[in-house]
Design a protein around this nucleic acid. Sequence first.
DNA 1: CGCCAGAATTAGCCATGGCTAAGTCTTGAT
DNA 2: ATCAAGACTTAGCCATGGCTAATTCTGGCG
Lengths: 156, 156
Amino acid sequence: MSDKQLTVDERHEPSDCAETPKVETQAEGFQAVRDAHRSEIAEDYVELIQELIERSGEARPVDIAERMGVRQPTVAKNLARLQKEGLIRRERYRSIFPTDAGRALAEICRERHQIVVAFLLSLGLDRETAEQDADGIEHHVSDQTLAAFKRAMGES
Amino acid sequence: MSDKQLTVDERHEPSDCAETPKVETQAEGFQAVRDAHRSEIAEDYVELIQELIERSGEARPVDIAERMGVRQPTVAKNLARLQKEGLIRRERYRSIFPTDAGRALAEICRERHQIVVAFLLSLGLDRETAEQDADGIEHHVSDQTLAAFKRAMGES
DNA sequence: CGCCAGAATTAGCCATGGCTAAGTCTTGAT
DNA sequence: ATCAAGACTTAGCCATGGCTAATTCTGGCG
């Protein structure tokens, strides 16, 4: 998917660098953020699908669309991608079911989401803000940071 | 920049909801995340441009490209958008300068970035991880959450 | 049973943000 | 003063993720 090549060759070093990270490090960081964006949708969808199934026994595109705040064709397109990636299984005009891989991913996401929310709540935020910010933040939290969140809550 | 508005109207309540937020709230949350994505690039660019100017006196597209980890034409396209949005000023084949609006945005972003980094560091993360996660997180942190971060650090 | 409302799909548009290839301009070195 | 290297731009491709419009299917109701 992402064809980064970069051919990193150590060039000059203008001497005026003081505290900021190296250029390649920064570039990789931005690259990582862009990569994260690509997987966000998949994660949001499998998480939501799992939630819908547990809540009402099935996950229908129309409900996903309503929950995500998008139109049905958008959902259809994204579901096609999820299917191609082996995260869900479906038959035409039928409900959607996550594969084992999808369920596993959903589980990871849900857990991470809950940790982030719990952490934000522990900082004194109201539930709605915590949920909303968590939706944006959770995809960009590294394992180390997630561990730090857990640690910080444990100590409270 | 971010036009989250909420317009909470109390609709039906299908009775099987227990703890999760209302459907419209969730949809708006996802909408807000999508909106945030659109403004991320602008924020990253003006922030980087400002940094380059302070560091070396000028911001050249080639340096921006290297820092962002993208090719020059990509930078050119994005700069065109920033210009259209009134965040930067430039003449062909010349360095780039932020407008007052661009500088103001850069200042806000830099401050927010630094708070997030400082907060992550205060949780015991190493600098590199903190910087990297901050790049992803900072665009999704509401004012309330930012304030909570500051508060948490102040108390330490 | 037949029919129609609504769910799902398909087709096709637009914007964004990557990229390469190729052309244009600037600038520094000879 | 020239010219070549490299910075910048332009043109045009691709993928993604929104959308509308139009079609197809399903299922429930008269």
